[in-house]
């Protein structure tokens, strides 16, 4: 089990790296999909079934699709590949590295409870959503999505 965990771990990391470094926009989107998928699987490993599948469903199935569509729509010409060059890679890279190191510094000092005490049933999410006080928030969330939906249509329509 652990072996698979680590494989997924590494794949997620590498594809994340590829997302931001590849020159082709299309490939970048696809790599993003892989990264999101990997994250979703990691959620599964953490014991969050519901969240994991929601992640895969929404992100990979919805968002990445959306990205692809938009890329297609915002293309200058069908023939040329979309170039997604990078500006000032070194400075920005340095910067990102700096952030990374700083955060790692912070992260080192965080105390994690040893694993033994963590085995519990974490699949409480559906009951949490539909049978508790969080129902209202969900309804509101759906309204939000509706708004976003309408807003996007408004912004991008041809008149």
């Amino acid at each position: 089990m652990k072996f698979i965990f680590w494989i997924i771990f590494v794949i997620t990391g590498i594809s994340g790296l590829m997302t931001v470094t590849t020159k082709d926009l299309f490939r970048s989107a696809l790599y993003l999909g892989v990264t999101l998928l990997g994250t979703g699987l990691l959620y599964l490993f953490l014991g969050f079934d519901f969240v994991g599948w929601v992640q895969v469903l929404v992100y990979v199935g919805g968002v990445v699709l959306l990205i692809i569509f938009t890329i297609m729509l915002a293309r200058e010409s069908v023939m040329k590949p979309i170039v997604n060059t990078v500006r000032n890679p070194f400075i920005n890279g340095l910067f990102a590295l700096l952030i990374f190191l700083l955060l790692m510094l912070v992260a080192k000092n965080i105390y994690f409870v040893p694993e033994e005490e963590l085995e519990k049933d974490y699949n409480f999410l559906p009951s949490l959503i539909f049978q508790s006080k969080y129902v209202l928030s969900f309804e509101v969330l759906s309204v939000l999505l509706l708004i976003a939906f309408i807003g996007a249509i408004l912004i991008a329509r041809r008149d």
Partner: peptide, 13 residues
């Protein structure tokens, strides 16, 4: 992943 994303946000054209 966060720092990668930051790098991407800063440097993508």
């Amino acid at each position: 992943l966060f720092s990668l994303g930051l790098y991407g946000a800063l440097s993508r054209r």
